[in-house]
């Protein structure tokens, strides 16, 4: 916000929960707490963007559900320059079913003009913030509740190429393509597999929309198995997007695809580690699934 006076920060009654409290303190004229009013927040942002401002809506994944039509009708249909930063994406823990952020991939990726991304750690989150703000048009980023991975946050944020994945590890007949919070567990699983003598390629997908079609289609042509991993509902999620891409390119029978994510049921409250493990969404779970 220091670099670009056009950036505006918005929260819907969650200044502390979203980190906007610091911005409200430092830039009281450029930050707004609109109250418990997510729908208004999004259309309020859309109005600002028509006048050339760059509003950033910091809204939890579960609460952005409440403003879906505003996101479609007021932002994406008009291709307006509004950014969505979705904290608490994934399993949130003790707050349970009403607060898990498991639907955002599905509800965002069907909307034209939207760019949707998820960082592998807090360092890459900074890169994505810069990337979103430099991009002209609607963009959304999801990131989980709680601590980062300890990544370097002192370096200058880097501009990322929209729709470009990151190849983290190359080799073998298996490719694990992970989205956001599942990238580090996928890497750990690959290391475990390597100890067993099984090489695996690991991809940090970065974007679910647009997908890195070039890389994914190349994997489909060269690997025996693609495992997609995401901390979200499988229906309409990242793995679904990958399968759609393969289907559109006639590659579904070339390669076996296994999707890992959250199944079609209500997820209870509890320790996130325990819940993620229950659905195989950790290094052990990914390792076991690939071995199978």
């Amino acid at each position: 916000m220091e670099r670009d006076p056009k950036i505006i920060a918005l929260t819907a009654a969650m200044p502390d929960g979203t980190g906007i409290d610091k911005v409200l303190e430092r830039y009281p004229e450029r930050a707004f707490d609109v109250g418990i009013a997510e729908q208004h927040c999004v259309t309020f942002a859309a109005g600002m963007s028509t006048e050339g401002l760059k509003p950033v809506c910091a809204i939890y994944s579960t609460f952005l559900q409440r403003a879906f039509d505003q996101l479609v009708h007021d932002v994406c249909l008009q291709d307006l320059n509004v950014k969505f930063c979705m904290d608490r994406a994934g399993i949130v823990g003790g707050d349970g079913p009403t607060h898990h952020g498991l639907l955002d991939i599905a509800y965002l990726r069907g909307v034209p003009n939207m760019v949707a991304m998820a960082p592998k750690d807090e360092g890459e989150m900074r890169d994505m913030m810069l990337t979103m703000l430099e991009h002209e048009g609607p963009a959304a980023m999801r990131y989980p509740r709680g601590s980062g991975t300890g990544a370097d946050i002192s370096r200058e944020p880097q501009l990322l190429e929209i729709g470009k994945a990151e190849l983290l590890r190359d080799g073998g007949e298996v490719a694990v393509v992970a989205y956001g919070s599942m990238v580090h567990p996928a890497l750990a699983a690959a290391e475990h597999l390597a100890k067993d003598g099984v090489e695996a390629t690991v991809v940090n997908a970065r974007f679910v929309k647009p997908l890195d079609a070039g890389l994914l289609l190349a994997l489909a042509r060269t690997k025996r198995l693609i495992v997609t991993v995401e901390e979200a509902y499988l229906a309409g999620g990242f793995g679904s997007a990958v399968m759609e891409l393969l289907e559109e390119n006639g590659l579904l029978d070339r390669v076996r695809v296994v999707r890992m994510g959250v199944p079609d049921r209500i997820i209870t409250h509890g320790d996130p580690k325990l819940l993620l493990a229950k659905y195989g969404l950790d290094a052990d779970g990914i390792y076991t699934r690939v071995r199978e």
Partner: peptide, 14 residues
């Protein structure tokens, strides 16, 4: 001690 939370990194970066 845990690494900083995503929320804090987001707020500081913004």
């Amino acid at each position: 001690p845990a690494p900083p939370q995503y929320t804090a990194v987001f707020g500081d970066t913004l």
